[in-house]
Each structure stands twice: as structure tokens, then as C-alpha cells.
């Protein structure tokens, strides 16, 4: 079976600084996969390359077998990949509902706007209460919900999440990971980048360890939880 999302020997660079060195990874349909690693390992770069914000230097990238390498960001969304960026990056002066409307900008999503809106409001009732409020005035946790909801509005097949727990209070972090559970239950494929290793391994099926722009290790969540290197270096155990 062709994987949902597949990367083969992908390289990327910022100017002369190379950030990714031949990264290969697969995500199967309906699977949740984590990418863990230290600061500056290239995790965010990986996300940016997949969603087309940063052009790929080398390698191939496909969704359901269709090549997406080299497509600009606005075309990648049309292929069914939605990206929840690091630090949420909501449009702070737009209302919650306007943020969601932008999320449904692509023609296929516009046609189903009302339906999708009902769905995300059902997933995140809090957002419905705050629909008219400028997104920038909400709490961090609510903003994260809004960012996820905005990505879901395009009715993606794959959801990329970049550090969804960053900068949030511990209790909110817990809520965010519960959200990931719910999104999986809706049948979405999830690729999630996290520094919060222990908790992310609880919600994903498999994970990759990225260090200095290359995959060092991969395995099922259970395997990685048992791996002594991961336990020492990333979980502080």
C-alpha cells in the first residue's frame, strides 16, 4: 500500500546553511507519527519543507503517491496537507471565525465551509463561544485550538503539527495532547514535531529521532520509550 505521506532523501538549506541531510520517512494512512529531537535539529525545517514554505533542495516527497516536491505552499494545501505552524501564528487582529474562514480558502474547502465550521465547532466548543473575538486576545491554549481548527478547515488528509505544546502551561499541554487523540479519532493522518518527548510518545504510533538534520533512529512509540539512549538524552530518566 502506498503510504499517505512519503519523504525520500530530502535535503534543504537556508542559503549556504544546510539544515536537512537526506531525510526519509513514511507515514501510513491514519497513522500518527512523531519527530523528536533537540533544538536546532531541523524539526521545524522539516515541517516547512513538507508544506512548501521552504523549497526542497533535493529528494522526493509525495502524498498518496502524488509528487509534491517543489510545489509552492499554496499548492501543497490543495493536495491535502495542512500545517499548524510553530507558535500558532494566528492572524491576531482577525476574529476567530475569520481565522477559520482563511483556513478554508482553497476552493474545495470553500464549497464545504458551513459543514466544516460546524465540525470544528463541535470539536472545539470553546472556539464557538469566542468566534467574534480577535484571535490575538485569547489564551495560549485557546489560540492553539484555533490554530489546529484553522488547519482542519481545509479538510486535510494529513495534519502537520509543529511543537503544539510549546509555551503552554503544563495543564494546557495535557489538553493539547488530548486534542491530538481526538483528531486521530476523526481519521486524520498526523505528523507531529515535539520536544516534549515523553508525552508525544504517548499519542503517536511511531516516531523518528532527528539530530543535526538527519534521522538517527526510528521505531514504534513503545520501542523508543524503552530505548536507553532516548530515555537518557530526551526524557531525563
Amino acid at each position: 500500500m502506498t503510504p499517505m505521506l512519503s519523504l525520500a532523501t530530502v535535503s534543504a538549506a537556508y542559503g549556504s546553511f544546510q539544515a536537512l541531510f537526506g531525510v526519509s520517512l513514511d507515514v501510513a494512512r491514519g497513522e500518527a507519527v512523531g519527530v523528536i529531537g533537540p533544538n536546532g535539529a531541523g524539526k521545524t525545517t522539516l515541517m516547512r519543507v513538507i508544506s512548501g514554505i521552504l523549497p526542497m533542495r533535493d529528494g522526493t516527497m509525495s502524498i498518496e503517491g502524488r509528487e509534491i516536491g517543489g510545489l509552492p505552499a499554496h499548492r501543497v494545501v490543495e493536495q491535502g496537507i495542512a500545517h499548524v505552524p510553530e507558535n500558532r501564528r494566528l492572524f491576531p487582529r482577525l476574529s476567530v471565525e475569520e481565522n477559520l474562514r482563511i483556513g478554508a480558502f482553497i476552493p474545495s474547502a470553500r464549497a464545504r465551509f458551513a459543514e466544516q465550521l460546524d465540525w470544528v465547532y463541535q470539536l472545539f466548543p470553546r472556539l464557538k463561544e469566542r468566534r467574534g473575538q480577535p484571535a490575538g486576545t485569547m489564551s495560549g491554549g485557546e489560540q492553539q485550538m484555533c490554530a489546529i481548527a484553522r488547519a482542519l478547515m481545509s479538510k486535510p488528509k494529513v495534519l502537520l503539527m509543529d511543537e503544539p505544546s510549546a509555551g503552554l502551561a503544563p495543564i494546557v499541554v495535557q489538553q493539547v495532547f488530548e486534542l491530538v487523540h481526538r483528531i486521530r479519532a476523526e481519521g486524520l493522518t498526523v505528523l507531529i514535531v515535539e520536544q516534549n518527548v515523553q508525552q508525544v510518545l504517548d499519542v503517536v504510533d511511531r516516531a523518528y529521532l532527528l539530530e543535526v538534520g538527519a534521522i538517527k533512529l526510528s521505531g514504534t512509540a513503545a520501542e523508543l520509550k524503552g530505548n536507553s539512549f532516548i530515555r537518557e538524552a530526551y526524557m531525563g530518566l
Binding site: H74, V77, P85, F91, A109
Partner: peptide
């Protein structure tokens, strides 16, 4: 309106 608030991220929404 969104593009003036965050130039980079609008691309992720499918905006050219």
C-alpha cells in the same frame, strides 16, 4: 487582511 498580519503563513492556507 490576513496577509498584512503574517506574510509567510497565508501560504499555508492556500493563499497565493
Amino acid at each position: 487582511r490576513a496577509i498584512s498580519q503574517d506574510r509567510e503563513i497565508v501560504g499555508l492556507m492556500g493563499v497565493d
